[in-house]
Amino acid sequence: MNNVASILLLAFLALTFLQSGYEKIFYWKENVAWLKEHFSKTILKNLVPPALLHLLIVELISGILCVVGAIQLVTNSGREFGFYGAVFSCICLLMMLFGQRLAKDYDGARTIVIYFIPAVMAVFWLN
């Protein structure tokens, strides 16, 4: 099996985004309340629910594509779904990074960079 590292990265991204999506779906009100406070001094203060919904959709797309991509790598060494899963993961993380920087939460932004590095590695390896 030549794709073990790529499969592990896709599993990491799938777990990250599917779990995050699950949290947003089942704890929507708590997330919205916390984020309204987090973004209260930014231009996003009145856009939290639609922005969170948009982020949720991108997270679910990312997670599903990563799962399908890992399965595709195992079954026939195809890379298309995994590549797009990794790209969507990067887009999702950039969206989060933008929000954290806008809210001046530099520690939160730094944490997102930790996730961004393996996502970019996945894009590179699956390209």
Rank of each mutant, 00 (worst) to 15 (best):
A51D: 03
V32Y: 06
I71K: 01
A109C: 08
N3K: 10
W34G: 12
T75N: 13
L15H: 02
W34Y: 07
F39L: 13
E59A: 05
H38N: 06
A70R: 02
E80Q: 08
Y84D: 04
I112V: 15
G69D: 02
K45Q: 13
L56P: 00
I91P: 00
E23D: 07
Y27A: 12
V120N: 01
A14E: 03
H38E: 09
A70Y: 02
A70G: 10
E30T: 03
I43E: 11
T42M: 05
T75W: 12
T16C: 09
A122P: 02
A122R: 02
F88H: 01
G21I: 05
G82S: 08
L53T: 13
F88P: 00
E37T: 14
T42V: 04
A33G: 00
F17N: 06
L52M: 14
G82V: 07
W125A: 12
L93G: 06
F81Q: 01
C66W: 01
N2H: 11
L18R: 06
Q72M: 09
L97A: 10
N3M: 12
K41R: 14
Y115V: 11
L93P: 09
L60K: 03
I71F: 03
V48I: 15
E30Y: 00
A122M: 09
Q19R: 13
E59F: 06
K36R: 15
K36W: 10
H38F: 15
L18C: 10
V68F: 11
L10K: 03
L60V: 12
L60F: 02
F116T: 10
W34D: 11
I117W: 04
Q100N: 13
L102A: 07
A5I: 14
M1H: 11
Q100C: 11
L13F: 10
A51G: 12
Y84A: 08
R79I: 12
L44G: 00
Y22I: 07
P118T: 02
N127H: 10
I114E: 12
K104D: 07
V113P: 06
S6K: 05
G82T: 07
L93N: 07
I64P: 04
F81D: 00
A119H: 01
F116M: 13
G82C: 07
R101K: 14
S62Q: 00
N127G: 09
